[in-house]
């Protein structure tokens, strides 16, 4: 099958090696005999919500977010209809903030969001920087290891679900113990590093949901040799345990 991917603003939202996430999704799709067709969508482009199975938004610095936000908000209704139709979203860091309802940045500027995720973000005084480890009870206790670096404090709406529980690190706001957000097939997180190379189970979850969007039925993915991935995860997880959240 062919997975059609919209990579939103790759020229502006790419601060934390976002192409690593795309490379991993592509390689793991191709290893199972599927194709992974990435389209770059940037300032001024139009989006056909029926044309994509997976949307990716990466991280950006304040200046890039200021440039992206007004353009992205033009697509708010389009992206929400793609979400309602079951398309998959992965948004990291700055992209995560902008996939919520909005972000008030460190200069006090209000940036509009796409409103796909049920959350809001306000920049805090101190940046939250360091290694992070999460457990995802909804995924059988699987863990995600990454790195976070954000000024934003993200507040989930009442009843909204986090992506994981912080074992070590700061997470959404450094207080609640929640990290990220999962809402239907839309996932947002502060974890970069990049996220997917060392957390292949999550990459496969995104791929199987995207394939389900393509075909309308559940799709099983054959296991791959992930020895290197697991070793990388374990080193990162140990890092988070020994020095995360400081």
């Amino acid at each position: 099958m062919n997975i059609r991917v919209a990579h939103l603003y790759p020229d502006l939202l790419n601060i934390y090696a976002d192409r690593g996430n795309i490379a991993v999704l592509k390689a793991r799709a191709e290893a199972r005999g599927h194709t992974f067709d990435v389209h770059a969508i940037t300032l001024g482009d139009t989006i056909d919500p029926s044309a994509f199975d997976l949307y990716y938004l990466g991280g950006g610095q304040d200046r890039e977010q200021q440039i992206v936000a007004p353009d992205l908000s033009r697509h708010a209704a389009t992206l929400r209809s793609a979400f309602d139709d079951g398309a998959v979203f992965l948004a990291v860091c700055g992209g995560y903030q902008l996939l919520g309802r909005g972000y008030r940045d460190s200069s006090g500027r209000e940036l509009p969001g796409a409103g796909v995720l049920p959350l809001e973000t306000v920049a805090g005084e101190r940046r939250l920087i360091g290694d992070v480890l999460l457990t995802c009870d909804w995924a059988g206790g699987s863990t995600l290891a990454g790195f976070e670096n954000h000024a934003g404090r993200t507040l989930l709406d009442a009843g909204a679900l986090p992506l994981g529980t912080v074992v070590a690190g700061y997470g959404n706001d450094g207080e609640s113990g929640a990290e990220g957000c999962r809402h239907g097939r839309a996932y947002g997180t502060y974890l970069h590093g990049p996220l997917l190379p060392r957390n292949p189970w999550f990459a496969d979850l995104l791929l199987s949901e995207a394939l389900e969007h393509v075909s309308g039925r559940a799709v099983e993915l054959a296991p791959l040799d992930d020895a290197l991935e697991r070793a990388a995860h374990d080193v990162a997880a140990a890092r988070a345990r020994s020095r995360g959240g400081r």
Binding site: N14, Y16, A17, R19, G20, A23, I129, G130, D131, F147, N149, H192, G193, P194, P197, R198, L228, A231, A232, V235, A236, R239, R243
Partner: peptide
């Protein structure tokens, strides 16, 4: 401490010619 920068490096022209890479350091797997 954040090693994500290695994904922003265009290592491909080097990788193309390598017969053998010895990856080392605290984050060798990455």
């Amino acid at each position: 401490r954040d090693v994500s920068w290695i994904w922003d490096v265009d290592f491909e022209p080097l990788a193309e010619h390598l017969d053998h890479l010895v990856a080392t350091g605290t984050r060798a797997e990455e």
